[in-house]
Nucleic acid binder design. Structure first.
Length: 516
RNA sequence: CGGGGAGUAGCGCAGCCUGGUAGCGCAUCUGCUUUGGGAGCAGAGGGUCGUAGGUUCGAAUCCUAUCUCCCCGACCA
């Protein structure tokens, strides 16, 4: 019997031991973000912000391709703007940060306090979302049917005073893009809502390698004030669902509140139909919990701030100069390559320090390809390649593969594209294996999500789509099991059974899951 | 916001019960020796003990308030 070699992982907690601790460990060890000292707010560090910048760039291209133009609207929204849409204000009232003063004065204890003399006549809300303020602008900008559709987007920060926060997943302040559009009729607005949803689906799957299920949310999960809300739902490695993006058809409610009207071809003043859609820094949390492993993050190549890192094995001797020259030539060759239609992002890490120590730092950050180059490699025209998604070999050592420099440079872009594909396939296979479709009653549902079951996935089940009080009852029943309805999956099989909640004939299939 | 836990060096922690002027491991710095792969030895630097009050001759330690984080709930585009 040979003794099984044990892998010495880069993190000190595994997903299996404690998923919540593991998540935080990845964020700390990959240097994505850290606590700020301000409740629920995080400092996003270079590697984490670099990923966000990649998301911004690639999403922004898609947004602009759809003819949507970027704008910027104020951070502060007059309180009265919210009062105009009843459901909307009710949905957000409990989590709004409000500015009430514009000046500080010394307080009796030697500190500072808001000057009672400097109270604002009308409080300003720090935007939790911008429907109201953008609606006010749309009302000014839209006069005629010729002005439609009006397609706007902004990249911004928003604030929601959440009771319980988690880095990237739910922070008091977060970064996002919010698209806001106005249309002549429901059909056009709905088409835009679904276009944005599809944009998010393809972005998640093709760029983040994060498989998602799209579909409309049930009535109780709609955005406050929306007529219909669609989401993309991703399964994290602990089986929980993460709503990674939403797209809303808002009907004419917001148009009515803000006075967004146009004169139609018959000369009638007509209300616009509006939409809004957004994705946020939460997506980074999704990437972590989709692709992270017990050695840190595995950053999808398309959003990796650096795709290839070259680590020279410096020896503090005369050989270093030649070694660095070899590495620099290699870096320049790689930087000329293209992957995913863009230049390859490659970093030569010449910082002082042992290559092995730097290696584990990059492993934890999840750089897709790490090259370690020693003097013998340089002399022989070789490179040693470590693929982050195939980190360990059978001997429980870092799985370096030696090849010639020319061979690697020629294959680098294909390799990056292969890693992207491999990450997606791994995530999709895992997700598909964790969706069950044979649950037909509440006992079966409870059994699937039994307390002692580790990381249960999702249940796709039939229901009769109750509304109002009947829906509330279903939501209560699910809540008792700590479950939520995620959405009605697009493309699910038609219903052919009985709703386990109401006993009525089922009309569609829904996804039921624990969620973030 | 309710219940529980925690804030002491960059990170992880001990010390607190029983008050006496701050310690360990890793990391960092310096030197030497090593090194085709997550090095060894020796030495060194680094802390208003979350913050603000209080008790006391004396507070990391006791008391009060407050801030922040983690876990479980409630809430959650």
């Amino acid at each position: 019997m040979t003794k099984q070699p044990t892998i010495k992982h880069a993190l000190n907690v595994t997903r299996d031991e404690d998923f919540a601790q593991w998540y935080q460990s990845v964020i700390a060890e990959a240097e994505l973000a850290e606590e700020s000292g301000v409740r629920g707010c995080m400092v996003i560090k270079p590697w984490g912000y670099g990923i966000w910048e990649r998301i911004q760039k690639l999403m922004d291209e898609r947004i602009k391709e759809a003819g949507v133009e970027n704008c910027y609207f104020p951070l502060f929204i007059p309180l009265s703007y919210f009062a105009k849409e009843a459901d909307h204000v009710e949905g957000f009232a409990k989590e709004m940060a409000v500015v009430t003063h514009h000046r500080l004065i010394a307080d009796p204890k030697g500190g500072l306090m808001p000057d009672p003399e400097a109270k604002l006549e009308e409080p300003l809300v720090v935007r939790p979302t911008s429907e109201t303020v953008i609606g006010a602008a749309m009302a000014r900008w839209i006069q005629s049917w010729r002005d439609l559709p009006l397609l706007t987007n902004q990249w911004a920060n928003v604030v929601r005073w959440e009771m319980r926060t988690r880095m990237f997943l739910r922070t008091s302040e977060f970064l996002w893009q919010e698209g806001h559009t106005a249309h002549a009729d429901e059909a056009d607005a709905m088409a835009e809502t679904l276009r944005a949803l599809e944009m998010y689906r393809s972005f998640s799957e093709d760029v983040l390698a994060m498989p998602v299920i799209t579909g409309p949310k049930p009535e109780n999960e709609r955005f406050p004030g929306a007529v219909a809300t669609y989401s993309i739902e991703a399964m994290m490695q602990d089986g929980k669902a993460l709503q990674a993006g939403t797209s809303h058809y808002l009907g004419t409610g917001f148009a009515e509140a803000a006075g967004i009207r146009y004169q139609d071809k018959e000369g009638q003043q007509t209300l616009c139909h509006t939409t809004s859609w957004g994705v946020s820094t939460r997506m980074i949390g999704g990437v972590i919990m989709t692709h992270g492993d017990d050695d840190g993050l595995r950053t999808p190549p398309q959003v990796a701030p650096q795709q290839i890192v070259i680590l020279p094995m410096l020896r503090d001797n005369d050989g270093d100069e030649a070694l660095l020259a070899y590495c620099e030539a290699l870096r320049a060759d790689l930087a000329k390559q293209s992957a995913f239609g863009e230049r390859v992002r490659v970093l030569l890490d010449k910082r002082p320090g042992k290559a092995t120590q730097k290696r584990w730092a990059w492993v934890k950050k999840g750089v897709p390809l790490i090259l370690e180059i020693g003097g013998r490699d340089a002399e022989g025209g070789q490179v040693s390649v470590l693929r982050r998604d195939k980190l360990w070999n059978d001997a429980a050592k870092a799985n370096f593969v030696a090849m010639s420099q020319g061979e690697f440079v020629a294959a680098a872009s294909a390799e990056l594209e292969d890693i992207e594909r491999a990450l997606f396939e791994e995530a999709r296979t895992r997700r598909d294996a964790q969706i069950v479709r044979d649950v037909t009653d509440l006992d079966g549902l409870a059994a699937y999500f039994a307390e002692d079951r580790k990381f249960p996935g999702w249940v796709e089940m039939q229901w009769s789509r109750p509304t109002g009080d009947a829906l509330d009852k279903v939501v209560e029943q699910l809540k008792a099991l700590k479950l939520t309805i995620r959405n009605t999956p697009t493309g699910a099989a038609p219903a052919d059974g009985t709703c386990p909640f109401t006993g009525d004939p089922a009309v569609e299939r829904i996804l039921v899951a624990r969620s973030y």
